[in-house]
Design a protein around this nucleic acid. Structure first.
Length: 649
DNA sequence: TATAACTGCTTACC
DNA sequence: ACTGGTAAGCAGTTATG
């Protein structure tokens, strides 16, 4: 096996985890696992100082260490664990700890100071955040790496829902923390189990660092090579920083001018992608075509960049004007037909880099360099978005809006081409078209050829669905291809629904689309089981992930704020609850399974399955009456389109 | 008192 | 320190007949 590149940099390195008392911060335990397999645990059995000395000695053994949530204290929001407050007056609350330290290195720093012993940790403060480092040594907070949006989306395809070690480990390693326990339970454990608990955390961090043959860290290292930023910095920064230094370098090298347009940084939304109205129905033989990397492509074709849009030199050049029909500017916030132009004299910094990255990515793919390939993919795909980010030093919403506008133009032209060839377009989203009953394989390749000729766009045949259930609502469909069912967007699949609804929904879909069996008996059984109260409450548990700390919600009355406040949860945490009846219990939610409001669950189940039943011609009104649930009104985009019921091919 | 319209939020798609 | 917009459904509030 080829040694991962990251190992050549890190050499022998250690993952660590500390346990401390939540209120006093007294250090209770620490564990260390190195990449060669050596494992150590220290407990605070007689003296905290002895433990602290052991920790320091271990850390100094290695030039590189890795932790989880280890070097940054993010939010100073601890309300002392009391749940009486949690409101906007918390600042004045005596229980509020202004400088609560919430990371491993921070607690180590604090405990060394408190005990009056030598410190190996350095503290720096930036705004409301404190950063801790070990001078002379390198440290990576793996939490910050797995917290990156592009790692979650591009690499792991949203496999984990929260960024807690337990959640990420369960999703990627298939096992989590010791007996699923949390830090609060630590002191309740026996000495033996305390050791196991602490050690497990370090083991998980080490395993995550190595996951998929160092996939993530190798990609970060590749980004470090591409951008010239050091590895540690790449691990704690994101796309705006990376693209920022790339452009900085180009300016320094004289490859492009400094940005000349300035914008208010008020974060006004700009117009985005085109999503076609789906023609609701059941289809057989549908091809989905997809324009390959649409946004980078249009950025290159139209030379869109911070240094080309509304340049100094081409204002009066008629060739520089954006030659798009008026309709494409409708609803735009930053561009209009007569107020923007694109430089004709110089290639923009952004397309220039994109071209290089694209070419390089192909080369690296051929060479089998997965990490470099992935790093380039991350940079290429994330390049357009940073122009719409107000904190990006090259923020330029005109560039972002031109990219999406050319994207809308391209999808519209693709539709024209498809229509002329006799295709029936039933849906499309941003860069894709759903073509029903393509006349033939030959017309399909004709479509691809014309898109290439007229638009210089490569179209890939992404899916060929034998059966397709297309919802009237956008971003919702179910496709069946080669024995595989793809459920896209449906509420019955979303993570804030309970397991019971998700399972029943899944069963129903499989029964209809895959097994060709009558789904109604199973649905009746599910409804009956719900009514009889025999469903395991575990399966009825709902959950929401807090986007804010409860006190920070703009709407203090929204469900997330209310539940979060009541249970003392923090930003990023998952809160579990049951739906209950507000008239009976005073709340629409409850932690107590005895308060479960079955009618809400029946309605939720019905809402997620009813449209599919309607499309597949089951008697929905009759069933709704039978189950005692409300039917829901849905818009219909059919435009007189006749639903098809052709046999599957 | 009932319902529609609206806002805020989470989750998903691209 | 932080890539983007589009869109669905739900809880909860406010306007309206």
């Amino acid at each position: 096996m080829k040694l991962p590149k990251v190992c050549q940099i890190l050499g022998e390195y250690v993952a660590f985890d500390f346990e401390w008392d939540n209120t006093t911060h007294i250090m209770l335990a620490a564990s260390f696992v190195n990449n060669l397999g050596s494992k150590k645990v220290y407990l605070n059995s007689h003296s905290e100082i002895a433990l602290l000395e052991n920790i320091k000695a271990e850390l100094l053994e290695y030039s590189w260490s890795i932790g989880w949530n280890s070097n940054t204290s993010f939010e100073n929001n601890n309300n002392g664990g009391t749940s009486n407050g949690g409101n906007l007056n918390d600042i004045a609350n005596d229980n509020f700890i202004a400088d609560d330290v919430q990371c491993d290195l921070g607690v180590l720093y604090e405990r060394c100071e408190t005990n009056g012993i030598d410190n190996i940790i350095f503290k720096s403060q930036k705004g409301s955040r404190a950063y801790y480092s070990i001078p002379g040594l390198y440290h990576i907070d793996l939490y910050q790496v797995y917290n990156k949006q592009m790692v979650q989306n591009t690499i792991y395809n949203r496999a984990y829902r929260t960024h807690k070690l337990d959640d990420v480990s369960k999703a990627l390693l298939r096992h989590g923390k010791f007996k699923g326990l949390g830090g609060k339970d630590f002191l309740k454990l026996s000495i033996k189990d305390r050791k196991k608990y602490s050690l497990r955390d370090s083991e998980l961090v080490m395993e995550l660092s190595k996951h998929s043959n160092f996939e993530v860290l190798d990609a970060m290292l590749a980004i470090s090579e591409i951008t010239g930023l050091d590895f540690e910095r790449v691990c704690r920064t994101n796309l705006t920083t990376w693209w920022g230094v790339l452009f900085d370098q180009m300016i320094q090298n004289g490859e492009c001018p400094e940005p000349f347009n300035t914008f208010d940084r008020e974060s006004v939304k700009y117009k985005g992608a085109l999503v076609l109205d789906p023609k609701q129905g059941l289809y057989h033989n549908t091809v989905v075509v997809d324009a390959a990397s649409l946004y980078p492509t249009v950025s290159i074709h139209s030379n869109l960049s911070f240094d080309t849009v509304n340049c100094k030199c081409c204002k009066n050049n008629s060739r520089a004007k954006v030659k798009l029909n008026d309709t494409f500017f409708k609803g735009c916030k930053f561009i209009s037909k007569n107020k923007c132009w694109i430089c004709q004299k110089r290639e923009g910094a952004f397309p220039k880099k994109l071209k290089i990255f694209r070419h390089e990515r192909l080369q690296q793919k051929k060479l089998g360099n997965g990490a470099k390939q992935l790093a380039l993919k991350i940079l290429i795909n994330g390049g357009y978005g940073v122009f719409g980010h107000t904190k990006f030093s090259y923020y330029n919403p005109m560039v972002a809006e031109l990219v999406t506008t050319y994207g809308r133009y391209t999808l519209t032209k693709m539709q024209d081409i498809a229509k002329k060839l006799g295709f029936h377009i039933i849906y499309g989203d941003t860069d894709s078209l759903f073509l029903n009953n393509p006349p033939s394989k030959i017309t399909l390749s004709k479509f691809q050829k014309l898109c290439k000729e007229k638009l210089d766009i490569e179209n890939e045949e992404k899916n060929t669905y034998n059966t397709l259930i297309l919802s009237a609502g956008k971003k919702h469909y179910i496709g069946y291809e080669n024995g595989l069912v793809a459920i896209v967007g449906y509420e019955g699949k979303k993570n804030d629904r309970c397991e019971f609804v998700k399972e029943t929904f899944n069963g129903l879909i499989n029964s209809i689309i895959k097994n060709n069996t009558n789904p109604i008996p199973a649905l009746e059984k599910a409804m009956y089981t719900l009514e009889s109260g025999k469903v395991d409450p575990k399966l009825l548990k709902k959950s929401i992930r807090l986007g804010q700390n409860p006190k920070d919600y703009k709407s203090q009355t929204c469900q997330a704020a209310k539940i979060g406040r009541a249970v003392g949860a923090k930003k990023g945490e998952l809160v579990e609850y049951f739906d209950s009846n507000i008239k009976k219990t005073g709340r629409s939610w409850s932690k107590n399974y005895r308060h479960i409001d079955i009618s809400k669950y029946k309605q939720s189940l019905w809402n997620s399955v009813s449209e599919v039943l309607e499309i597949t011609k089951y008697p929905v009104n009759e069933l709704a009456e039978k189950f005692d649930v409300r039917t829901i009104k849905r818009k219909n985009n059919n435009d007189g389109h006749v639903m098809q019921n052709l046999p599957a091919v």
